Structure formats: C-alpha cells, structure tokens
Amino acid sequence: MRITGSIVLYHNERDVLLEAINSFLADDFEKHLYLIDNSRTNELQDIIQDSHVTYIHNPANPGFGAAHNIALKLAHTTASDFHLILNPDVYFGKGVMLELLDFVRDREDIGNIMPKVLYPDGSVQYLCKLLPTPYDWIGRRFNPFKNMVEKRNQLFELKFTGYDKIMEVPYLSGCFMFLRIAALKKVGMFDEGIFMYGEEADLCRRIIDGGFKTVFYPKATIYHHFEKGSHKSWRLTKIGIQSAIYYFNKWGWFFDRRRHRINQGTLKKLT
C-alpha cells in the first residue's frame, strides 16, 4: 500500500511544522509527503531534507483546498492508495498511521477516516459534526447566549456520543483526513471555489453521495494545537462567512432535503 500526504504551509512555526512532518514519516510504509507552501516567500523550503518529501512553493495563495489539490493530482499519478490531508499543527505517535491503514485497508466502503483528536493537554476536540445549517456556521458565531450555543453543540458536534466508539459521521475535520484515492477518483477533489473553511464539509458530503462512508475511529489518537483563527480575526471571519455563503448557495440554505436525510440517519444510528 502506498500512502501520500500533504501539508499546506503558510508562515508556520518551524518546530510545530516539523512535528507534523516527522509524525507522517515515522512509520515504515511506502510513502511520500508534499509540502505545498502558500507563504509569500519560500523561506520554509529547507525545513527538511528527505527523499520522501517534496516541497512546492506557490507564486500566489490559491487557498487551502486548491493547494491540497496540487498534491492530490500528484498522488493520482503515483499510484497512491490513500492520501492524508494533514494540518501543520497536528502531531501523533508512531503506529497511528499503520493502525488506521490496518482498519481501513479492506473496508473498501470507507472513503475518509479520522482518529480521535485531542488538545496537547489531553482534552477532547469535538470535531465530529452533522452537516451544517446556516445557523451552525453563521448564527452560532454571533449568538450571545452561550447556553443556546452549547445546547446546539451537544447535537451538532455530536458531544452526546462521548466520542468513545467507532461511528459514521457526515462531517469530519479537515485537520486530518485519511482519504481513499478510489473515492476521490469518483467524487473529485476539494472544491476550489472555497478559499478556506468548510471545504472538508463539502468533500465529506460528496464522498457520502458517492456511496462511501466517512468514519470516526477513536482507537487511534492524534494531537492538534488548534487555534480558531476565524474567531480571533475579522479578516478570517469574513473568509469563513464567504465560504459558508458559497457552500449554502451550492447545497441549499434552509431547504436541503439531502442534508436533513443524512443528519437524521446519523442521529438515528447514534441514538
């Protein structure tokens, strides 16, 4: 089995980025990692010298999904079986990739799998979600009533499940997407109309519509530094809202029967 991976860079801290790179390289399998650098300069090109790593600098910043698509196109041409979308602030121990591969290898109906994601202090990150409604992506951001937001999060982020069992989840985080190349060949790659935020929801939805499963696998664990940039910067908030508008224009705002069926089916299985 050949596994490729990609990390999109943007003026990252070197120590944190090296943790992510070395996590992918740690296990013994046929592999290649693409570093797609959207930074204004190529100052990160010397981050690592390894025959399993290719560095590519973009002359302009095309966005998160578009940058990963550069690597995915290369993965398609190198007979890769799986491709890992990895955030530059994620790290994990040796054996994680092999454990995921062992689980997913012969389950050909799984198109995307994500392990349990923890903060560095060991607390859980709630990154399993239902397909979003406009309230989930826009309304929650501006709702001043924390109790209302948390009540919705219990459902939207599937907190009620305890995050302790294998489960099909329609919307998994883009910080770690272990993707089956055969699924991508059927449904396509990231929608480059989304610059950043929400592209993983769009891709997960298309993977499901292509007849594949998107699965949460808590038996493997990774760590994610994770800073909600969209909640700390109005520029990123604007990008997030623009992405949400694009997504809902594509799939439907308040009347989206397919979203309703997928979400209700998910909740029925989990409750």
Results as ranks from 00 to 15, higher is better:
139 G>C: 09
63 G>W: 12
60 A>D: 11
147 N>G: 10
47 I>G: 00
39 S>Q: 04
204 C>W: 02
105 R>L: 11
254 F>S: 07
202 D>H: 05
156 F>M: 03
190 F>R: 00
197 Y>G: 04
243 S>G: 12
146 K>C: 07
44 L>P: 00
2 R>E: 06
136 D>V: 04
148 M>P: 06
213 K>H: 13
26 A>N: 04
117 V>N: 04
29 F>A: 04
120 P>T: 07
87 N>Y: 10
81 D>F: 09
143 N>W: 09
138 I>Y: 11
262 I>Q: 03
102 D>I: 06
26 A>E: 09
90 V>I: 11
78 T>S: 13
137 W>S: 07
71 A>G: 01
175 C>W: 02
247 Y>G: 05
61 N>V: 10
90 V>N: 08
180 R>Y: 01
248 F>H: 11
13 E>M: 14
82 F>P: 00
147 N>Q: 15
230 S>R: 14
205 R>T: 03
87 N>E: 15
150 E>Q: 08
181 I>R: 00
52 H>D: 15
186 K>W: 05
79 A>P: 02
13 E>T: 11
44 L>E: 14
61 N>S: 15
154 Q>N: 13
35 L>T: 12
267 L>K: 07
101 L>Y: 05
195 F>S: 09
211 G>V: 09
140 R>Q: 11
91 Y>D: 06
134 P>L: 08
143 N>R: 06
223 Y>S: 04
241 I>V: 15
156 F>K: 02
130 L>D: 09
66 A>I: 12
83 H>K: 00
223 Y>A: 01
87 N>R: 02
188 G>P: 00
103 F>Y: 15
184 L>K: 00
174 G>F: 01
3 I>H: 00
135 Y>L: 05
